[in-house]
């Protein structure tokens, strides 16, 4: 018996990618614009999303899926805005995958019935708080927001480049705390520009409302243009 090398050339995440592609196609057909949020734990995804759902919900039919290892606390917070919300409990899994999104939309033992996408203008997907693993998994979203708060280090983009490579827009959160935290805005913008040249940055504060309107306009325009928001740099699909 002699060893032989057989070329197979298969993408390891091809099943996730295929599921994500099918989801994206379905979202487009049904007219649902899908935005995902990624960040480290505690950067303020849920607070920002509550604000977005509350304001956007006045005009559009909005919904959200939220991933956590345990508890449905975030789903309850988000549902208080009046939006349709489902929690995805991942157990020990540190990120969301396309199949989890698909299952949550379909509904299972926890959820009574499938969501009708044609009745939803926006779907927000709040990923598990983690700046590493979510980067590898396409969820079928149209737009990926990466959040960084002013209380985190300004070199975070350099430490976790992959998530910045796969995101479309960077949202700085807790700008009201910038002075108190000694936040170096120029250093943060420089770090973002180094890992992702030309990346759009939106500075927000849920406390004083800064930047929230800009963010809402961005997603509303995204929905109106459909695929018009595709980023110039996309490490995720560039190969």
């Amino acid at each position: 018996m002699t060893p032989r090398l057989v070329e197979v050339r298969q993408q390891i995440l091809k099943k996730n990618d295929a599921t994500a592609r099918a989801l994206r196609e379905r979202f487009r057909q049904e007219g649902t614009f899908v935005v995902s949020l990624v960040s480290s734990p505690g950067a303020g995804k849920t607070s920002l999303l509550c604000e977005i759902l509350r304001r956007l919900g006045a005009e559009y039919r909005v919904s959200a899926l939220v991933g956590d290892l345990a508890t449905d606390n975030d789903a309850r917070r988000l549902a208080a805005t009046g939006a349709a919300v489902r929690q995805i409990v991942t157990g020990t899994v540190c990120h969301l995958e396309a199949a989890m999104v698909e299952r949550a939309l379909e509904g299972d033992a926890d959820f009574e019935q499938p969501w009708r996408l044609d009745e939803l203008d926006f779907l927000f997907i709040e990923n598990v708080g983690n700046l590493v693993c979510p980067a590898s998994y396409d969820l079928g979203e149209d737009l990926r927001l990466v959040l960084v708060s002013t209380t985190e280090g300004e070199d975070k983009p350099l430490k976790y480049p992959t998530i910045f490579h796969t995101a479309d827009v960077c949202v700085l959160t807790k700008m009201d705390l910038a002075d108190a935290a000694g936040f170096d805005r120029a250093a943060m913008l420089d770090a973002i520009g180094r890992v992702r040249p030309g990346m759009r940055v939106i500075e927000t504060s849920v406390r004083n409302g800064a930047g929230v309107v800009e963010l809402i306009e961005l997603v509303a325009r995204g929905r109106a243009c459909g695929a018009g928001l595709q980023p110039e740099t996309n490490f995720g699909t560039g190969l």
Binding site: V6, V8, R9, F235, G238
Partner: peptide, 16 residues
């Protein structure tokens, strides 16, 4: 970016 994001099984070494 043209390379550096690969996550690919490109070959199997088999005995036959």
């Amino acid at each position: 970016v043209v390379a550096g994001r690969e996550l690919e099984v490109y070959a199997l070494e088999v005995l036959e």
